[in-house]
Nucleic acid binder design. Sequence first.
DNA 1: TATTTATCCTATAGATTTAATAGATTAATG
DNA 2: CATTAATCTATTAAATCTATAGGATAAATA
Lengths: 135, 135
Amino acid sequence: MLSKKTKYGLKALTFIARRTDNKPVQIATIAKSENISQKFLESILLTLRKSGFLGSKKGKGGGYYLLKDPKEIKMSSVMRVLEGPIAMIPCVSLNFYEKCDDCPDENTCAVHNLMIEVRDCTLNIFNNKSLSDLI
Amino acid sequence: MLSKKTKYGLKALTFIARRTDNKPVQIATIAKSENISQKFLESILLTLRKSGFLGSKKGKGGGYYLLKDPKEIKMSSVMRVLEGPIAMIPCVSLNFYEKCDDCPDENTCAVHNLMIEVRDCTLNIFNNKSLSDLI
DNA sequence: TATTTATCCTATAGATTTAATAGATTAATG
DNA sequence: CATTAATCTATTAAATCTATAGGATAAATA
C-alpha cells in the first residue's frame, strides 16, 4: 500500500511543478488546494527539502520551490525517499538490500524469484517517469 | 512491503505443491523446514483453506493438501487472499475499489494515473504466474 | 472406546508504522 | 521591530502486523 505520506508528497510536488514561474509556494496553499492536513504536509515537504528535491524560503513571500527541472526528477528517486524501497521484500531490493532471517538460499526461494520480477517491472516504470510526466 | 503472512503463505504453498503424491502435509513439518513459527503458520494455512486453496484432514496422518492442480492456482488470487489488493492505492484497485477522500477528480489525479500503470504491470505478472511456476 | 494426533478457533499482547497534533523556535522581509 | 512563514522537537492516537496461548474439536488407530 502506498502511504498517505507518499500520496500527499507526490501531489504536492505536482502542484509545485505546475507553477511555471517557479516562485515559492506556501504550505497552506497546497494543503488547502489538495485537501491535506497542513501540519502533516509540513513534515512531508521538510523531507523533500532535506532530500534535495525542494528548496525553501522563510518569511513573507516564502515557501517551497523546485530545485531541478521536473524532467530531471525521476519517480524512482521520489518514491525511494517518500515510500522507501521499491521492492516488495528486502532480499530483492537494490538500494535497501537485507537478507531474510528464515531463508537459507535466495536462489532457490520461490518468493525471492517472483519478487525480482515484480521489482523489475515496477522499477522500469518509475525509472522512466519523471515529475513532468505527472503534470 | 510484502507481509510475513504472504511470504510464509507462499512458501507453505510451494512446499505442499512439491509433494507429488499430494498426501497431507503437517503444519509442523512445513514450519520446521521453512523456519516459520508454527502457530503463525497455523492461522495462515487456515486462511488458505477457507479461501479454497487447501483442503485439510484431521487426526493421525492428517495435514494440508492442495485442492487444485498447481497450474490452476494463479498468483493473483493467492496474493489477493494473503496480501490484499494488488493495487498500491484503493482508487485504482479492480477488486477492492475505494474512492479517495481528498481527491475531487480521479481522471486528473497524477497519483491515480501513475498507480494504474504500476497495477497493470504487477497484475500482468501475477495473472500469468501459477503456483507451478514457483516450484 | 480410550488414546493419540493434528486441525480449528478465539482472544490477546507486543511491536511497529502511520498519521496527525501541539507548541516553541528561527529567519526573512518591509 | 513587527509580521509572516518556515522549522524543529516531542508526543499522541490509531491502525496494522506478528506472534503466542490455551483450549476445543475431529479423525484415525489400537
